[in-house]
């Protein structure tokens, strides 16, 4: 039984890689494995890694592959329930109470004592706190999506610790409890992706409920494939030089290392300049595509000769 399972698993993982390739996302083995596990165990994935390696992109790609809507919640300090889960439509409630004011007399009609009228109002007390007056925010939206959704909780490390605790129920049971309404279950289990840049340690309780995927900078081969996919017209020789250069840069002590998206941008720029080989002048003039700090650019400019001619690592 184990062996048949195994064959299924590696086949499904191949299939996942293929599907992602079709829409332009090159998934490494570990990425594909975690997608497979997340689907078969229905667990959220917590993605960590340096900026610009495609953490957010993975969720976007996944929503394209599965053709489910992507619902994105960007975290920031001070993010709270009202912004993440739901809010009452106060304006609408106010308007309705004003309009219904006259109706009140009819409702109250016939009530003789104070107690009686109070009871009558009680029969209506929930009309202003039901789903008609509720403004669903990303989390609730994702749970209510009929065909299932891809929920991306981006940069979780930017939010407060309290918010993390608040996510636990959703991540474990795909359910939230609203005080006025009660528990809301997911109509169809959403696929949840959480990303973190590690500016703050994520709590153990949350980590326990997730698969943990670390995406490092890509290997040469993987990055070559990515460039091939995104800039197919670039010739092989130039591609080789370009990737070597970027990988050499990543070994330096820079403020911000060039990410995949920056490599792709740079490849496009190189393509536009229509050259056959990377020379120092060209690199110098286009360095600002790769590096985003003046200090880094200056540092690399002085090191250029050794970087372009240096031995391949």
């Amino acid at each position: 039984m184990a062996s048949s399972n195994m064959a299924d698993a590696s086949e499904s993982i191949k299939k996942i890689q293929n599907q992602f390739y079709q829409i332009g996302y090159i998934a490494s083995d570990s990425i594909a494995t975690s997608i497979f596990l997340a689907q078969s165990l229905s667990k959220p994935i917590l993605i960590e890694g340096p900026p610009g390696v495609g953490k957010t992109e993975l969720a976007t790609a996944f929503s394209k592959v599965t053709e489910r809507p992507l619902i994105r919640l960007q975290c920031y300090e001070g993010l709270d329930e009202a912004k993440a889960l739901y809010e009452w439509k106060y304006g609408k409630q106010l308007l309705y109470t004003q309009i219904l004011r006259e109706k009140m007399n009819d409702v109250m009609d016939g009530a003789k004592t104070l107690q009686e009228s109070l009871d009558k109002i009680h029969d209506f007390d929930d009309i202003f706190f039901n789903e008609k007056f509720m403004e669903p925010r990303p989390l609730l939206k994702a749970l209510k999506q009929k065909e299932g959704a891809v929920l991306l909780i981006d940069e979780l490390d930017k939010s407060d610790q309290e918010f993390e605790a608040f996510l636990l129920e959703i991540l474990q049971d795909y359910r939230v409890t609203l005080p006025e309404i009660g528990a809301v279950n997911a109509t169809k289990t959403p696929h949840v992706f959480l990303t973190s840049n590690n500016t703050r340690e994520i709590g153990d309780a949350l980590k326990r409920r997730c698969l943990h995927l670390y995406i490092p900078f890509p290997s040469r081969d993987l990055e070559k494939k990515i460039i091939e996919k995104h800039v197919p017209t670039l010739n092989d020789d130039l591609k080789e030089q370009l990737i070597n250069f970027v990988h050499n840069l990543r070994n330096l002590d820079l403020k911000k290392l060039p990410s995949i998206s920056e490599t792709i941008d740079w490849a496009k720029v190189i393509l536009l300049t229509n050259v056959d080989t990377l020379d120092n002048e060209l690199v110098k003039s286009t360095l600002n595509v790769l590096l985003k700090f003046q200090d880094d650019i200056e540092f690399v400019t002085t090191e250029l000769p050794s970087l372009t001619k240096g031995p391949k690592l």
């Binding site: 399972n5 195994m6 698993a9 590696s10 494995t33 596990l37 960590e48 980590k207 997730c210 995927l213």
Partner: peptide, 30 residues
Amino acid sequence: IDAGHAITKIGIVNRSLLRESLAQTLAKST
């Protein structure tokens, strides 16, 4: 428990796959 579930899905013969799956279910930081 998660790791156990993952193993039943993945099987044990493909070693690198097993290694990766267990890493994702058990080890939660770099």
